[in-house]
Every structure is written in structure tokens, then in C-alpha cells.
């Protein structure tokens, strides 16, 4: 009896530990809850390649793990701000994405981004922005400004949330005070710190998970990402998303091929696969952010194709920008401000 139990356990362990690294396999390292199972199913069916997905929760964790080596992943999905670091640290192979057959579907403005010149390294996944969510039944004024959280109108005091993301929050405050992202200007940074410290008592929380709190009307404003604003509006029709005029940050996540990948051909097949409109549509359908593939709108749910949170209204396009990761000495000041803010 005991022997039988032991061998059963050993069998379970053995079958679990055989992570296949053979051909016909692909190991994707992606943000949690970001990959549409339908997309993977379709890919496996069309190509016969078996995909294993492993999650990460932040750019820093992903970078640390891949840099340490021995991870066994083939593809990862870093954000644009970190992508140049992955390139300069020598973590990536160059699969020449720009020469793949489906590259023709990539929209013009995404063919040569600053953070991947010539678009050789990365295949587009999704992109979005950092802006302002407001429940317009509580506050009816202008919402296209970071002033909503940094100089909040009386109606909103105590009902504000700020995403607990150091870089997004400090960049937004710098833009609000008229500076440039990653500025080393100490005069300005001091003002940034004072502004944040002054505004914080008027906030309720610095937290994720805003959708249910907007739906339950526990919150009335937040500095947050556009996809969540979109989903919150579906639950509470009074929620609107503002694109700050002072300038706001855009972000994009893109699929890259790791240098120590064992399944290179399979990985390239996947990169090409996600640039087909029907497949990019599946990506957006699941995580509810925009992609960069022309013609994918046809394959998205109807409510998405017209949503002002997903498709940036023309008058606000010019204010958004992609910002890089700041240099180390600036980052140090950011961390000091952030610690001071939360002490």
C-alpha cells in the first residue's frame, strides 16, 4: 500500500518535471492574465507547436530572471521602456521582425518606433496609455488634466486612487508641472515632491483593482491605465477617461526572441503569427487594449472598435508620448521621492 502510494507520487512528480524542450515546443514568458487561451489554441492547431505559458508580474522581475539565465524561455513580452535595456544587455536575438511575411500588417506609425529602430527585434503585442479616470456623476468639469489627482476639485477629495507605479506617477507629476520626463532638474523635482506630498492626504488609496470600486462608487477618480477605464465604463456608464493636455505617457508591450532560446524557429513562427489581423484581434479581445495591426478591428468585439479609451480621439493624440526608462541617477531621485511620499 505504502509502496503504491510512493510510486504514484513519484509518477506524478516525474510527469510534471518533464518540461519538454524538444522541437515542436515553445515557452512563452508573458505578463499574467495577458494571453488569450483562444489565441494559443488556434496557434497550436495551425502549427502543431505546443505552447507553455509562464507568468510574470513586473518588468523588473522579468528582466532579473532573464538576465540571471537558465530560465528556459524562448519569448518574452517586455514594455517599450525596458526593451532597449534588454537589447543593450545582450539578452535578445535578432529575428528580423521587419522581414517577416506578416510585417506588412503592422500600421505605419508602429514600423519604426524610437525604442526599436527599424523594428527588427520586437513584434507588437498591445499598447495603451496612462491617464485619468473620473466618475462624471461626481465631478463634471474638465478631466483632461493630471490636476484631477494633483490639485483635486473639492468634490473628488477622499475619493481618489493613484496606481502604485512609481515611474508612472512621478512622470505624470513632472509633466503636470511643465517638465520633461526623466528630468534631472532638481528645482523641478523638489516641486514634484512637494506637490505629491501635498496631494496625498486627499487620496483614498494607491492601489490596483479599481474597476469594482468605480462600479461600487467607492472611488470617483484615479490615475490609471486606459484598458481598465474602458472596462469600468462598461460597469458604470458615468466613468470617463481623460487624456491630460500637459502630456501623458504611452506604453507598448512587444514580443521579443531571447538569445538563449532553444526553440528559435517555433518562436519566429509565433511572432509572425501574432501579426496577422485575426490573431491580433484575439489578443485585444482578451486583454482589451489596442494592438498595432491594420485590419484587426474587424476581429475585435464591437464595443472596442469605437471606444474612446482604446482609440485615442484625434485632438488628444499629440499629447501622448513614449518615455524611456530613466538613467540611474535620475531613478535614484525618483526612489527617494517615492519613499518620502509613502513613509
Amino acid at each position: 500500500m505504502k509502496v503504491a502510494q510512493k510510486s504514484l507520487l513519484a509518477g506524478v512528480l516525474l510527469s510534471m518535471s518533464s518540461i519538454a524542450l524538444a522541437a515542436g515546443q515553445l515557452n512563452l514568458y508573458n505578463w499574467g492574465n495577458y494571453t488569450n487561451p483562444k489565441l494559443i489554441e488556434k496557434f497550436e492547431k495551425e502549427t502543431g507547436i505546443k505552447v507553455t505559458i509562464t507568468d510574470y508580474d513586473s518588468n523588473e522581475t522579468a528582466l532579473a530572471k532573464v538576465r540571471a539565465g537558465g530560465h528556459g524561455f524562448d519569448l518574452a513580452v517586455p514594455s517599450h521602456s525596458h526593451l532597449p535595456i534588454w537589447v543593450s544587455e545582450g539578452l535578445l536575438a535578432n529575428p528580423r521582425v521587419d522581414q517577416m511575411p506578416n510585417f506588412k500588417n503592422v500600421a505605419d506609425e508602429w514600423r519604426n518606433p524610437d525604442w526599436d529602430p527599424g523594428r527588427q527585434y520586437s513584434a507588437p503585442w498591445q499598447w495603451g496609455s496612462v491617464g485619468i479616470m473620473v466618475d462624471t456623476s461626481v465631478y463634471n468639469g474638465d478631466i483632461n488634466t493630471f490636476g484631477i489627482v494633483l490639485d483635486p476639485p473639492q468634490e473628488l477629495v477622499g475619493k481618489i486612487n493613484v496606481a502604485p507605479e512609481m515611474n508612472d506617477v512621478i512622470t505624470s507629476a513632472i509633466l503636470y508641472l511643465g517638465g520633461e520626463a526623466c528630468t534631472g532638474d532638481k528645482q523641478l523635482l523638489r516641486k514634484v515632491r512637494d506637490k505629491l506630498v501635498e496631494a496625498k492626504p486627499k487620496w483614498k488609496s494607491m492601489d490596483y483593482g479599481v474597476i469594482e470600486k468605480f462600479a461600487g462608487r467607492d472611488l470617483a477618480a484615479s490615475l490609471y491605465w486606459n484598458g481598465a477605464a474602458f472596462r469600468a465604463r462598461l460597469k458604470n456608464p458615468d466613468v470617463r477617461y481623460g487624456y491630460p493636455r500637459e502630456g501623458y505617457s504611452l506604453w507598448a508591450d512587444a514580443v521579443v526572441l531571447l538569445k538563449d532560446a532553444k526553440n528559435v524557429e517555433e518562436a519566429k513562427t509565433f511572432m509572425n503569427f501574432i501579426m496577422a489581423p485575426e490573431n491580433a484581434g484575439l489578443i485585444s479581445e482578451f486583454a482589451r487594449y489596442a494592438n498595432s495591426i491594420v485590419g484587426s478591428e474587424k476581429y475585435m468585439p464591437e464595443d472596442m472598435a469605437t471606444a474612446p479609451e482604446v482609440i485615442i480621439p484625434k485632438e488628444f493624440i499629440g499629447f501622448g508620448k513614449f518615455y524611456p526608462t530613466c538613467p540611474p541617477d535620475v531613478q535614484k531621485m525618483y526612489t527617494a521621492i517615492w519613499t518620502e511620499l509613502q513613509k
Binding site: G32, T54, Y56, D57
Partner: peptide, 25 residues
């Protein structure tokens, strides 16, 4: 677990941690 796991070794907590920034369903 998040730092030690190899490819394909997500546990329930790391699976959930990945959901934290989006919506926990």
C-alpha cells in the same frame, strides 16, 4: 516561487499575482 520557478512551473499564487494588475477574476 515567482523567482525560482522554471518555464511552465506557475503555482496558484504566482498565477494570481500575474492577475493583480489587471482584474482578478
Amino acid at each position: 516561487t515567482e523567482f525560482v520557478k522554471s518555464a511552465g512551473q506557475d503555482t496558484l499564487p504566482t498565477y494570481m499575482l500575474g492577475q493583480l494588475r489587471r482584474t482578478i477574476t
